[in-house]
Design a protein around this nucleic acid. Structure first.
Lengths: 316, 316
DNA sequence: CATTAACATTAAAGCGCTCACATGAATCAG
DNA sequence: CTGATTCATGTGAGCGCTTTAATGTTAATG
């Protein structure tokens, strides 16, 4: 493995110049810079991350702290992880998966936190000395990345209205968190804009729960009904309820989900859903965090991704 | 942050002794060892991974090379990842996610490879200079970790026979890979042992494909039928086919899956499945790999995990 | 009691890199 | 032409750790 010294020798310059070409290319004359680049290429030089980390007093590790039950949200997180890991790799940072219990183990240069709930802010406060980016909206002033939840649900609701539905229910998750507030608001606003009555039901994020709730409603209702669901998981349950009752989808019952990560495609019929670009969002988390680390924890604000309506068999 | 020097000063020994206490505790007298431990505790000493990596010429990175389309197998991998990451963290190794295209980027001390197919062996051969452990059975002599596929399917088949089914089909995946051969063999063996006729159908690992195949079969069949599926995904399709035809589960149609990772629980009724302890298996991959790295690539053989039959509504 | 083997401990070098500082050349005001 | 100023480059120290080789200590041997 070629070292910085080897490159310096080959280019007949000092080690310092090589180091400078890597870290501050603009502070080196064009001539020398090209010389060094050529030598690096010829020797197939790859910087030694450990050596740099040692002198920079960095660990080159960033942690992903997952506060939710991983079991219940699994498919979603795989994409997040992928997005983060891909971006981090570009900068020779590596990702450490930690949970509520293990998050204090080992050093890191910063964290990405996901699944943060109201009650977590007090208990996890110790991590806030370090650079941190939250995955998921928050109203506490921390930098975060999220999808535009309100706009997403607006897209879904409007789509259902365009399909001619007038009885449109919202199935939400019974969590008092900003992302849910936004989704609910998107639904209510759109309904009001169109002069329709909102009807909201909150429940645990489980397909079995939404299935029984939807069944209970559909048994008493006579007209065609649409469900705006706050997650694909809830939507899956609604689809099953409709099928059990022999109601045709999407003619008598239409359903939209939210996430577009996995469940939307294994459902039958496939779900119309609001796709979150999770991989890209994960990448953005990583980018923001690395920038914060470089700028010594400076505040960067938030980043809201535009959601996308994916139309499939559950509505058309 | 306390350093090794600080500890040495506090314990009034040389740096060397402290280092030796960490790396070869048996080569230091009991008295000194305790002294050093006490000093370490008092100063809250944490070794600097980068410094160690620098002198040991290690990167402290291991890569997970995922050769399958991640999209189609997602929930499964999240567990694998978790298992690997958890074990690796204990040893201050970090995990880098790479794909077919990105696997050459950056250094690593070893790899775990998953989704390896027959045709990959030639193209990925360059990674085999380094310590490597495969996740998934192989007959090429590489160290691997897998679940006992044959035994798993045997459990499922026997369970169905015990439930009184005599017409039992096997829905397999059309891949010519060892894990599928094992699953098929487990089915055939058990059927023969019980004097029943095996009937095998291979297809793409898609719930929609298995749904239509199951539907085609069930339309012509008159007696109660059971399906041994090679994946939960296939099983989900079979369940849907039965429901579409108005056949009752598990009285007229019974189904078993394989994996027990995610789909088994969102299906309705929930699936009887063969659970693979993926998290533990991931941990074992990591352990094996770290041992190989330490022992300079020595061959370690394979590790087959016992599968577990989870009985749920799709069969009883 | 001197010699040596066996073991415990230390001093010092160096892993590959970056940084603060030193040096030297070129430019410009006066 | 001198001294100040700028810019490009080099020197050397040191990040925290492990390792080799050297040194000190003890116990066993003749």
């Amino acid at each position: 493995m070629a070292t910085l010294s080897d490159v310096a020798k080959k280019a007949v310059v000092s080690k310092m110049t090589v180091s400078r070409v890597i870290n501050h290319p603009d502070k080196v004359s064009d001539e020398l810079r090209e010389l060094v680049y050529a030598a690096m290429k010829e020797l197939n030089y790859v910087p030694n991350v450990a050596a740099r980390a040692l002198v920079k007093k960095r660990s080159q590790v960033i942690k992903l702290l997952i506060l939710e039950e991983m079991d219940t949200t699994e498919p979603y997180y795989m994409n997040l992880l992928t997005g983060i890991a891909l971006e981090l790799d570009k900068h020779h940072y590596s990702l450490q998966l930690v949970t509520r219990n293990s998050h204090a183990i080992g050093r890191c240069d910063g964290l990405i936190v996901t699944g943060m709930r109201e009650e977590d802010y007090s208990s996890i406060i110790s991590v806030l000395n370090q650079p941190v980016v939250l995955f998921g909206q928050n109203d506490k002033g921390y930098d975060f990345v999220d999808v535009d939840n309100r706009k997403g649900i607006k897209l879904a609701t409007r789509h259902l209205i365009e399909q001619g539905f007038e009885s449109i229910l919202f199935f939400g998750i019974d969590l008092n968190e900003p992302f849910m507030a936004m989704r609910e608001a998107g639904y209510v606003e759109t309904m009001c804009e169109c002069g329709l009555n909102p009807y909201i039901q909150l429940m645990k994020n489980s397909s079995h729960v939404s299935q029984s709730n939807a069944a209970a409603y559909l048994k008493t209702s006579r007209c065609k009904t649409a469900f705006v669901c706050a997650s694909d998981r809830l939507a899956v349950g609604v689809v099953r309820a409709a099928q059990d009752l022999g109601l045709s989808i999407p003619e008598q019952v239409a359903v939209t989900g939210f996430d577009g990560v996995f469940l939307d495609r294994i459902s039958c019929p496939k779900l119309t859903t609001i796709r979150q670009p999770i991989i890209e969002m994960g990448g953005e988390c990583a980018k923001m965090l690395l920038q914060k680390i470089q700028q010594d924890g400076m505040k960067l604000g938030s980043c809201l991704f535009p959601p996308e309506l994916i139309v499939r068999g559950s509505t058309v």
